[in-house]
Design a protein around this nucleic acid. Structure first.
Length: 210
DNA sequence: ACATTAAGTGATT
DNA sequence: AATCACTTAATGT
């Protein structure tokens, strides 16, 4: 845990804060599709992502889902942190997109560090603001982009997050993430393949352009 | 060989 | 862009 912390955070956090993180945080290994957080959960711990990727999904009452954004190394969901300061329940779901590692930090401590460490304060604010940016981007995408554009953005986002141009997923799964139907996804993917932007296989998509 | 699951396609709304 | 109804293809048992 020590080395992993050093790797990613020694540049932003001071020694003492790193030591505290090490002391109070617990290292959690997440497997693909593990749930980090679900809608309605009361949050007492907030994960700090060391590596891997997590997708943040919004779900409505009917169970329809839509992907808001992805988290990657060094990210934390400051939204959920601020959220749980006022004891609110989570409004989103976090699912590991691939095997990942995270340090779970107790909210109690996070609160304390807000006053104690400038770097922590800045980290949270920075994280909060970039989450907000991503959220706004997600709204733009939803409101103004046609399905074909949305799909392509989804693919290239995913390629960046996964650091792999070959995505192991199904048309069905993509349809769920974008809240559309599998048939539509299949057709649009076919189009993209014809435009030489991707290559299609079973359970696999190779993204050539992103 | 058979069943299951993923993906492709035309027609309709 | 969604839905239906169906086909084809790949994969698991």
């Amino acid at each position: 845990m020590h080395e992993k912390l050093q790797d990613y955070f020694s540049v932003i956090f001071e020694e003492e804060l790193l030591r505290e993180i090490e002391k109070y945080g617990k290292l959690v290994k997440l497997k693909k599709d593990d749930l980090l957080i679900d809608v309605g959960n009361l949050i007492k711990e907030v994960p700090l992502l060391l590596n891997g990727a997590v997708k943040i999904v919004r779900e409505d009452k009917k169970g329809d889902e839509i992907v808001l954004y992805f988290l990657e190394r060094g990210d934390t969901c400051a939204i959920s942190f601020v959220n749980c300061l006022n004891n609110a329940k989570s409004k989103v779901r976090g699912v590991a997109e691939k095997d990942s590692e995270a340090i779970y930090l107790p909210v109690k401590k996070l609160e304390e560090w807000m006053g104690k460490y400038k770097t922590w304060r800045e980290f949270v604010i920075e994280s909060y603001s970039s989450r907000l940016d991503e959220m706004i981007e997600a709204i733009d995408t939803l409101a103004f982009m046609k399905m074909d554009k949305r799909l392509f953005k989804y693919l290239s986002d995913k390629v960046k997050i996964m650091r792999d141009t070959t995505l192991h997923t199904t048309h069905h799964q993509i349809a769920l993430d974008l809240n559309t139907s599998r048939v539509v996804v299949s057709r649009l993917l076919k189009q993209l393949e014809n435009e030489k932007k991707i290559k299609l296989y079973r359970n696999k998509i190779e993204v050539l352009e992103f």
